[in-house]
Each structure stands twice: as C-alpha cells, then as structure tokens.
Amino acid sequence: MKRWYMVTVVGKDRPGIVAGLTEALYRGGANLGEASMARLGGNFTIMLMVQIDAEANELERLMAPLARELALRVHVDAIEGRLHEHLEPNVRIAVYGADRPGIVAQVTEALAGAGLNILDLESDVAGTEAEPIYIMTIDGYARDGVGVLEAALAPIRAGGIEVRLTPIDTLVG
C-alpha cells in the first residue's frame, strides 16, 4: 500500500543534491509531493513529502548510497498528511530589526496570542557580522482579523523592531 512519508535531509551544501536525491527516489518507485528546500547557513536542508509502497527503513535504504557519498543526514517519518490541504493566508507580516536573541519568540508569541496561524515562515540574518540584522516574512491566517494583530504588535514596535502587516486579498479570476 502506498503511504506518505516526510523525508528531511540536512548536509553541507553543494551542487547536485536535489538531483541526486530525487533521482534515487524516482528510481526506487517513489512519488514526490510538496517540498521545501532552503540553504540555511551554508547547509543544504530539504523537507519533502514522499509517497511509496514501502516501509520507512526501505525508503531510507533507497537514499543511503547518496547519503554516504555526500555525507547527508536523512530522517524519515511516516505522516498522516496528504496533498490538496492548502490553507489560504489572509495576512503577510514582514519583520526586520537589529539582530538580537528573542525577536522570533516575541513576535510570534504576540501574533499567536492575537489569533494568527502561521502558514509559512522564512527568515534570514543579513547585514554585517558586526551589525547583523534579522529579516523575517510570515504568511498566516489571522482568525480574528488583521486589526487585532496590529494592536498586539504595538509593544514589539516599541522595542525597535519594524513590523509591517499587509492584508492578503487573494484575487480569484
């Protein structure tokens, strides 16, 4: 029986990892679903949904030769999820400021308390080594509306973090 797994792969970045990984999965009879790859701090990272008629350890074996060759760490989880489960965001939140510990925790705690479900989050540290800046974008669904989020963010802004909320009104045509 075909089932879905979440495959997480981490390693030192180099060209050809996605190609090698997906080729091994394809040859092994797997089908890919949604995936998200990011280069984080020079590391290659990917999470991808893999559907295959096999046990988790068999799926791991498919990727083992490549993992050895490229020194990748591979993790496999059986998942309940399936495709066509997208949720539509109704707000985008752009955050930036001088980097310091606690920005993400403070911003997301305020947002969660105001009814935000985060659907997508991406962040970077930019600027210079001496003066790093933290930049984050979030797409989410504000259960109680964007106005409630604005109010909840006032203390964050007072602390010197720039936060911009943009309602998302998805056009369907």
């Binding site: 997208h86 539509e88 965001p89 998302i168 009104d169 998805t170 056009l171 369907v172 045509g173």
Partner: peptide, 13 residues
C-alpha cells in the same frame, strides 16, 4: 505584487 488564484488552477495561489 498581489496574491492570485484562478478557477482554472484549483488549490494553488
């Protein structure tokens, strides 16, 4: 820049 979806492309925006 804005978000779009389409009746001819279900389940994606």
């Amino acid at each position: 820049v804005g978000r779009e979806g389409c009746l001819s492309v279900p389940d994606y925006t």
